[in-house]
Design a protein around this nucleic acid. Structure first.
Lengths: 128, 128
DNA sequence: TATAAAGTCTCCAGTTACTGGAATGTAAAG
DNA sequence: CTTTACATTCCAGTAACTGGAGACTTTATA
């Protein structure tokens, strides 16, 4: 199938699918006459896999790794679990950061009158 | 003072401080002889302000806006509050996303044996 | 005073994961 | 046969820096 069909089936944009071909993540066959990319069902499965992993916040490089683990019949589930646990840990860190950020900001907002006068504890805090 | 001193006082890297000069956020005077950037205490105060706002997850453009509000003696605290509330809302969205991501991933991890066998529900999920 | 080391300058490239657009070529529909 | 839709490549831009090269100035050491 052509690229737009593959894109539709995988829920990705044509641009993104072409990008994945460029970076050698999913390299489809080529139609010799037209030069058009020609996607197999297997290619689409890979695109799906990558799309999902990206939605799970795995980076492109991590996707590459997961994909090769997926293709490797001798891999151990241990390896995949390790990758996923590391990902969870990094998400936890981000969560912690954002939580404290949020708390600090909302504290500042609570202290700010939000009226037409210039006095503003938010700016005061930023300038300290 | 020279750039490295300004960087040290503001807790930013020299590269970053030079970058802020390039994008016209904090434009120091120049030493005519050497061409070196020459930072005043006020420049350093601006750098501090920006550094803090960046740590509060405000973008460069938002920092620019906050900085001009800070400098504007006629501003209303309402404007600043509005910007901050919008920032909190966007952080909340990110928090929600990351939370559900985390939950899904940790559910997958719980289902995965993590042993030397290839069977792995994490990869199974990604390939669905 | 000569030289070495440290600090600074500008400019270019790379990072991440795409996205938009131009110019051009191919395929399908009317 | 022409219009339209889809495809191709290549270049540039995004956000906010960071790293490095090559050249110049200032400061410290011998």
């Amino acid at each position: 199938m052509n690229i737009s069909q593959a894109a539709k089936l995988s829920g990705l944009s044509v641009k993104t699918v072409r990008y994945y071909a460029d970076i050698k993540m999913v390299e489809p066959a080529r139609n010799i006459q037209s030069g058009y990319r020609s996607y197999s069902n297997d290619d689409v499965a890979k695109l799906n896999f990558i799309g999902k992993a990206r939605r799970f916040n795995f980076s492109i490089e991590e996707c590459r790794e997961l994909l090769s683990l997926y293709r490797d019949k001798n891999r151990s589930s241990k390896e995949v679990k390790k990758l996923t646990l590391a990902k969870i840990a990094s998400i936890d860190e981000k969560l912690k950061e954002f939580h404290s950020l949020r708390d600090e900001l909302s504290h500042l907002v609570d202290c700010c009158n939000g009226d037409d006068r210039p006095s503003c504890p938010i700016l005061d805090e930023l300038s300290k």
